[in-house]
Amino acid sequence: MPQIPETHQKVRFYQTGTLTVGNRLLDAEHRSVQGTMDRSNSLDSGHRACQGCGEALGARFAIDAAMRATNNQLIAANATGCLEVFTTPYPETAWSVPWIHSLFGNAAAVGAGIAAALKAKGREDVRVIAQGGDGGTTDIGFGCLSGMFDRNDDVLYICYNNEAYMNTGVQRSSATPGAARTATTMPVGKDPGNAFNTGKSVPLIAMAHLIPYVATASVHDLHDLEHKVTKAMGIHGARYIELFVPCPLGWGSKPSDTVKISRLAVECGLYPLIEAEHGELTGVTKIRRQVPVGEYLKLQRRFAHVLKPANTHQLEQLQAIANRNIKKFSLIEEQGGQE
């Protein structure tokens, strides 16, 4: 089997006890957009997101990076959902980019329409982002998203994946993992929580559309997110980034654990970080320090039942999924192996 090359990043940051990140150790050109004085603050403070909201954190970094990459020539279309609601309580707005919210299921199509308008007007210097949560992307917005991929519209779609419908009160989506408690998959009965062998991987489906760029990212590695957004904005055509964003409210986790949970999701293998171009996998983020899935699960009340003795079969199923991901995407460096 051919080795999948490791993704872009040459310099790695390791989380320290104080959660600081060594941005200042880098050359100026490699420093994060967020670490610069002239960042655009496109999603500004004062919005109504919950404490520890992974989506607010991710959106801020993603949009600021896109603004930097496009010389501030950016328009954003937003699906209905938390990100829309907490940023634009009438008559206030937290956005300093031109921003439109139309419906729950049409952000990709609205984005495609904006891109078409800009092309018709010869304003292809202005770029377009469409964004939404996992429900607005993988479920109700899926038809429009697939259409946007199919037509290769010049839009970067960012899905903020918190694995359920948080805005409506934590109901299951097609991005909810097996065993997870949601309001519609309660931890009762002999297989508590969400059913296994359901759901879908939209990054893999996006790859099947052979679009120019697909990536997954996580809010524990915001440098990587900025890099992927910047790379995406350097490409024309349909692009897709799915960002893993813990939701303290919906997951029953501490607001202060958002970044830690993101890191553990990646390090246990449940959330692989990948990059793909034109349908081919071009990079993965290797796991440096693998952890058992239990380390990730135990910080979230939505999985509390999984850790009870009666439900070890669920814990094993989740570990098996992580193991499959690790194998499928070569997430762990083979010891002493040479390509």
Partner: peptide, 9 residues
């Protein structure tokens, strides 16, 4: 939906 986007632009 695309017309909504294009009209807004």
């Amino acid at each position: 939906s695309a017309c909504i986007g294009s009209s807004a632009a």
